[in-house]
């Protein structure tokens, strides 16, 4: 999962303080793993350096926590590219995919497209594995099957999520 893209995405809805960013992240995606403030600070400096965000203003009283960040056009393009690119199908993808879907919903992008893109990528991978399995020996078959079953589970999750997008949108909008 890319924390940088996630924070960038959160900034798309408007400029925020670093501390606000951490709270929004924890609330939407952090659940059992809250972000260290240090992580936010270092990520933001990297994004700043790459020109994806800019400092919108500094509260009087100084200190790094008082900086307010805003996303740049380059940053928006970067988020867009990230969302549109399917993840490499691999086990335990869900958290990244989930983040992408929620962010898409938050930024009013087409979440269904994200899921479908991922789905196509999954199936492409499964085809490759299936093909390898058909040509390979027993060991290949077993290894491929393992991957196939996991990918299938992901794919089911994608289908289920696609079917529940409307509900998720309601929850996220709150």
């Amino acid at each position: 999962m890319s924390i940088g893209h996630t924070l960038l995405g959160l900034l798309e809805s408007g400029p925020r303080h670093g501390y606000d960013l951490k709270r929004a992240f924890d609330e939407k995606f952090g659940h059992d793993r809250p972000l260290h403030y240090g992580q936010v600070y270092s990520t933001m400096s990297r994004l700043l350096k790459n020109g994806l965000v800019e400092v919108d203003g500094i509260e009087p009283g100084g200190g790094p926590e008082r900086k307010r960040y805003a996303i740049t056009d380059a940053g928006i393009t970067d988020v867009q590219r990230w969302l549109a690119t399917p993840e490499k199908p691999e086990p335990y993808l869900q958290s990244t995919l989930y983040t992408k879907v929620v962010l898409a919903l938050l930024t009013r992008r087409n979440a269904a497209d994200i899921l479908d893109t991922q789905r196509a990528e999954h199936l492409r991978m499964m085809r490759i594995l299936t093909d390898r399995k058909r040509k390979g020996d027993l060991a290949d078959q077993l290894i491929c099957d393992h991957a196939l079953f996991h990918l299938e589970a992901d794919l089911r999750w994608l289908e289920l999520t696609a079917a529940r997008l409307d509900k998720l949108a309601e929850v996220v909008a709150k």
């Binding site: 299936t130 079953f149 299938e152």
Partner: peptide, 16 residues
């Protein structure tokens, strides 16, 4: 409705 069966295909169409 099974992905592993669909993986035998060359192409996929989803109906919703």
């Amino acid at each position: 409705h099974e992905a592993r069966v669909a993986a035998y295909s060359d192409r996929e169409i989803v109906v919703r």
